[in-house]
Nucleic acid binder design. Sequence first.
DNA 1: GGCTTGTGTAAAGGTTGGGTAAAGAGAAAA
DNA 2: TTTTCTCTTTACCCAACCTTTACACAAGCC
Lengths: 229, 229
Amino acid sequence: MQNRVLLVEDDDELRQLLSRYLATQGFSVREAANGRDGLSLALGQDCDIVVLDIMLPDINGLDVLRELRGKTHLPVILLTARGDETDRIVGFEVGADDYIPKPCNPRELVARLQALLRRIAWDQQADVDASRVYGDLRVEPDQRRIYQHGKPLELTATEYEVLQVLLAHAGSVVRKTDLMQWALGRRLEAYDRTLDMHISNLRKKLGNDDPPRIETVRGLGYSYRVPTQ
Amino acid sequence: MQNRVLLVEDDDELRQLLSRYLATQGFSVREAANGRDGLSLALGQDCDIVVLDIMLPDINGLDVLRELRGKTHLPVILLTARGDETDRIVGFEVGADDYIPKPCNPRELVARLQALLRRIAWDQQADVDASRVYGDLRVEPDQRRIYQHGKPLELTATEYEVLQVLLAHAGSVVRKTDLMQWALGRRLEAYDRTLDMHISNLRKKLGNDDPPRIETVRGLGYSYRVPTQ
DNA sequence: GGCTTGTGTAAAGGTTGGGTAAAGAGAAAA
DNA sequence: TTTTCTCTTTACCCAACCTTTACACAAGCC
C-alpha cells in the first residue's frame, strides 16, 4: 500500500525535485504551490501526510497548519529556510509533528516521513499485549496490576513499582541504591528503612514462601528468584 | 501524574542539565548513565518516552534501540554528537521516532518531546468514532449520548467526554493528566479538582455500585472496570 | 563469646491524595 | 434583565499509605 504525501512548496524546482525523489521511494505524491491549494487538498482527505513549507506566497505555512489543526490531526512535517530557533518552537506549538530546515536532504525527509508514518501505524495497532510473565506472576502495565495465579495482587503504587523493577531484573541482584532510585525515585540515604518496609510488605502479599521469592543479598540488595522451569 | 521521560546519557553534566530542565517543564524524569541500565529501565519501569544518546560507554545507543524495538514501540528520540547524515538515516531505520543533534537546545528537545507525545495521544484517540458497547453501557458518538440499559444518561457535555474517554480505555488506567487533556482539553494544574468533581458526579449518575465502575488508582488516575468475564 | 553491621517487621506518625458538599463564576436561555 | 444550567473553586474530612521509630535477630568478624 502506497503512502500518499501532499507536498506544499512554492519553489517549483525544489518541489519537483522532492516529488520525483519521493516517487522513487514508493510514495504517491500530490503537489500544491501555495497555501490555499495546499489547505484544500489536505482537507480533501486523500493524503496520509503533509510536507509543508512555511514560506508560501499567499497564506503563511503556519497559518495553514493552524487552520488544518482546527479540523484534523493529519501528520504534518514543516519545511523551512534554515531556521531560527523560536521559529521551530512555534511550529511545534501550532501542531507540527516534525520540522526540517532547508536545504533538506531528501533522504532525511524520507526517513522522517517513514518514521512518522510508522509511529502512526504502531499507535493505531490494537494494544500490543504488553504483559510480561514471570512464573506465576503476570505484570499488566496498562492496568498497573500484577496478577498471581490470575488473581490481582492488592499492591500500593510503590509496591507495584518495587516489584515490577525486581521482576524486570528477575534472576539478578538489584542493588538497594538502584532499586530506591528506580522505584521510589530518590536517593537512598543512611538509616532510610523505607525500602526494607516495602520489601517486607511485598513478601507478605506474595505469600511468605520458603525459600522466599524475594531473596536478600546481604550488603547489596534484593533479587527476585526465578521460578524453576 | 506527568509524562515520564527516561533520559539515557552518560555525560553527567549534560544529563543533569537536561533532567532539571525537563522537570521544570512538567516532566517526571528517570535517568540512566549507560546502555544497560537504560535498557532495563525502559523495559521494566514504565516510562512514556525515551531520550537516548547514541554514544554510550557500554552498549551503543543504536543497539539499545534495536533491542528495545524487538519488544516495544516505546517512543524514542535519539541524541547524538555528530550530525553525520548516514548516522541519522540509520537511526530512523532502526526505529527511532526523532533525532536531535547535540549540542541540543533544551527548548527544542521539549518541543519535540511534546510533539511526539501529542501525536501518540491523537493516534490513540483516533478510533473513538464507532458506537461501542461496554457491558450495560452503549456509547453513541454521533448523538453524544451514552445509554445505560437502553436509557440515555443525563450527562453534561464534559461528563460525556470524561466517561467516553474512560470507556475508550476500558480496563486500563487513564492518568489524570491524560484524562484532563483528552476530555477537558487543557493541562492538569496543581490543586485543580475539576476532574475529581466530574468523576464524583459521574459515579452518582451511573449509580454508586460497589465495587465502583470507575475505579480510583491512587496517585495515577482512574480506570473503568471491565465487565467481569 | 562479644562486637558491629545489616536486615525483618510491628506499630506509630504524618503527609498526601481523593470524595464531595457547597459556594462562586460564566455562559446561555428566557 | 433574570433565570438556569454547567463548570470550577473552595473547604473540610477521611482513608490510604509512605516514612519513621523501635526493637529484635542474624550474619560476619575479631
